[in-house]
C-alpha cells in the first residue's frame, strides 16, 4: 500500500464519495431554507451545519425550535437522535488500524452517516487509511456547510420541498445505503426487526426513541440468529 500516495488515496475516496456529495446538496439547501423559515440568520445556519454536522438531528432541531432557543431541549434532542453514532463509532473504531491515536478521535468528529457508511464499505473491501477517510469526509463536510448557507440565503426561492420531493432525498440516500449492506437472509431478519420496532416505537412514543429501538431490535435479532445457527452447527 506504500506505493499509493496519500493524495491518490484522498482523490480516489473523494471520487467514490461524489454521488453522495451530489445527493446531499438538495438536502443542505432544504435544511438552510427550513432553518431560515424558523428565523435563524444565515450565519447561524452555517454555524450549526459546521459545528453539529449531523443532518438528522439538525432537521429535528428545526421541528422543535423555539424563540429564544432552549439549549437544554435542543442538546438533549441531538443526543437522542445521534445516539446511533455510539454504535457507528464502535463499529468503525475496530477498523482504524492505519490511524494514529489522535487521528482516530479527530476522524470521529466528522462521522456523519454517509461518511461512516462509505468508510465501512472501504474497510470491508480494502484498507481504510486516514487519507481515504479524509477524502470521504472533507469535501462532503464543505458541501454540507456551503449548501446549508446557500439554502438560508435563497430561502423561499427554492419552493416547498414537499412539492418538489426534495424532502425525500435524505431517506432515499439511506434506502440505497441499506441495500448496500444486504448479505442474505440474516440481513433480512435484522432489517425486518429494526423496521418493525422503529415503526411501533414511532407510533407509541414522541421524539426520536424509534431510532434507538430499531437499532436495538436489529442487534438482538443478529445475536439470536447467530446463537441459533451455532446450536444447529
Amino acid at each position: 500500500m506504500q506505493d499509493r500516495s496519500a493524495f491518490q488515496e484522498f482523490r480516489a475516496a473523494a471520487i467514490a464519495m461524489t454521488p453522495l456529495i451530489v445527493a446531499v446538496m438538495p438536502i443542505g439547501l432544504v435544511f438552510g431554507a427550513v432553518a431560515a423559515g424558523k428565523g435563524l440568520a444565515p450565519a447561524e445556519v452555517a454555524l450549526m451545519s459546521a459545528l453539529v454536522f449531523a443532518g438528522g438531528s439538525q432537521f429535528v432541531a428545526m421541528d422543535i425550535w423555539t424563540h429564544p432557543a432552549s439549549w437544554a431541549a435542543l442538546g438533549f434532542s441531538a443526543l437522542l437522535v445521534n445516539i446511533r453514532h455510539v454504535l457507528m463509532s464502535a463499529s468503525i473504531g475496530g477498523k482504524l488500524d492505519a490511524f494514529s491515536g489522535p487521528a482516530r478521535y479527530a476522524s470521529m468528529l466528522l462521522l456523519a452517516d454517509e461518511i461512516w457508511a462509505m468508510a465501512e464499505m472501504r474497510a470491508s473491501n480494502g484498507r481504510l487509511t486516514p487519507a481515504w477517510y479524509a477524502g470521504l469526509a472533507v469535501p462532503f463536510y464543505c458541501v454540507w456547510v456551503l449548501t446549508s448557507l446557500a439554502g438560508a440565503l435563497l430561502g423561499a426561492f427554492l419552493g416547498d420541498p414537499k412539492v418538489t420531493g426534495l424532502d425525500f432525498a435524505f431517506p432515499a440516500v439511506f434506502i440505497v445505503l441499506v441495500m448496500g449492506f444486504w448479505k442474505g437472509r440474516e440481513t433480512g431478519a435484522v432489517l425486518a426487526a429494526s423496521a418493525f420496532a422503529a415503526v411501533l416505537t414511532h407510533q407509541l412514543l414522541p421524539g426520536v426513541w424509534y431510532i434507538a429501538a430499531g437499532a436495538a431490535a436489529g442487534v438482538v435479532v443478529a445475536l439470536f440468529s447467530g446463537a441459533h445457527r451455532e446450536a444447529h452447527a
Binding site: 457507528m88 425525500f168 441499506v178 432489517l191 423496521a195 442487534v219
Partner: peptide
C-alpha cells in the same frame, strides 16, 4: 462482533422506517 456487524443496516433501517412505512 456479530452485534457490531448488524449495527449498520439496523440503524439505517430504523431511521427510514417511519417515512417508508407509515
Amino acid at each position: 462482533k456479530r452485534a457490531l456487524e448488524a449495527i449498520p443496516p439496523a440503524v439505517l433501517m430504523a431511521v427510514i422506517a417511519p417515512t417508508a412505512f407509515v
